[in-house]
């Protein structure tokens, strides 16, 4: 099966999830000739060399000044061009803001369908099957693309689930794409940076989240301070966001972000069903709460019943001690 992966970049930097998609494409394709990647942007040709060695022989590159800022109409044209040239059976992207924005358009353009945010994906005898969390993780469904009759299937996969595999130092040949960017109905004026330079919640390996019991936006600083020690990204519960302690971009849960870190530390979060939905697939969950009846403890790997305002600084000190000894 021929598989094409969208390798995402922002501001000229490849995103780790792009390598996850590329590794997965190579694995599903079974041999490097049937796997390819596509890079879209401005001054991104140099990044193609970074994509070698992941098991894909070819990298398509759309490198034009007009592609510097993400624009769905132009990026869709670029991906369409790569699909027409490579003729894949399956196109994989990350279920990121860009991947989720582009693939629905491409699925319609190729008279096909799309499975989004999969946590498992398999190909056997030409069948494309996977697993997809629904209702914010309250259920998981078996999903399949059927009746494709030669058209490419489209899938986006959840970040931080699929392994990055770099089997060798192999080279990849580059094929340049020329993209028609004449459609001027949509113009990207700018991309404003967020307040945080940290990894996005959806890609973070460690997250420390606070609930309403933190009491104020100012008190989130104790989370930030601890987060800085272990390279974590700070999140918040809906209750904390609704109370104005944190912006919505930090919200974890059914109406916020669905996250998947290796470590999730929930501080003063009771564990409402809609919060659990957004973080229950975290690999290790730590809960700190003064209420031992809080539902968050039911899904925690490790829990501490105690005062968060005392426990978090203590934890920060222990982390410092631990990591300091390593240095």
């Amino acid at each position: 099966m021929k598989v094409l992966a969208l390798i995402e970049q922002r501001h000229g930097k490849l995103r780790s999830s792009g390598f996850e998609a590329l590794s997965l494409a190579a694995k599903l394709a079974g041999n490097s000739a049937d796997a390819a990647g596509v890079l879209i942007g401005s001054n991104v040709s140099g990044l193609a060399t970074e994509c070698a060695g992941y098991g894909a022989d070819k990298i398509y590159v759309a490198d034009q000044p007009e592609l510097g800022l993400y624009n769905v109409l132009h990026y869709a044209k670029a991906l369409e061009q790569a699909i027409k040239n490579f003729q894949p059976d399956l196109v994989i992207a990350t279920s990121s803001p860009i991947g989720r924005d582009l693939l629905p358009r491409l699925a319609i353009r190729f008279d096909s369908e799309l499975l989004t945010d999969l946590v498992a994906l398999e190909v056997s005898n030409g069948k494309i099957t996977g697993k997809k969390p629904m209702f914010a993780g309250k259920t998981i469904a078996d999903v399949e693309l059927v009746e494709l009759s030669g058209k490419p299937g489209f899938v986006s996969v959840r970040p931080n689930i699929f392994a990055i595999e770099k089997p060798g130092n192999g080279t990849a040949s580059v094929e340049k794409l020329t993209v028609d960017v004449s459609d001027n109905r949509l113009k990207t004026i700018e991309i404003r940076k967020g307040a945080s330079e940290k990894a996005d919640l959806t890609e973070a390996q460690i997250i420390i989240s606070g609930g309403r019991s933190l009491g104020s936006a100012d008190n989130f600083k104790i989370l930030q301070s601890c987060a800085d020690v272990i390279g974590a990204t700070v999140g918040a519960s809906r209750a904390a966001v609704d109370a104005g302690f944190a912006p919505h971009s930090m919200q974890v849960g059914q109406t916020g972000k669905t996250v998947n870190p290796s470590l999730y530390i929930a501080c003063g979060i009771s564990g409402a069903i809609q919060h659990l939905a957004g973080m229950r697939t975290s690999k290790v969950i730590v809960a700190i709460n003064s209420d031992e009846e809080a539902p968050i403890f039911s899904i925690a790997d490790y829990g501490i019943v105690g005062d968060i305002f005392k426990a978090i600084p203590l934890m920060e000190a222990k982390f410092k001690e631990l990591l300091g000894h390593d240095a």
């Binding site: 990121s96 803001p97 949509l186 912006p247």
Partner: peptide, 14 residues
């Protein structure tokens, strides 16, 4: 439009 990392894409559209 809100994207990852708290970034915002600003568009003008017909």
């Amino acid at each position: 439009r809100e994207v990852e990392g708290g970034q915002t894409e600003v568009y003008e559209v017909k």
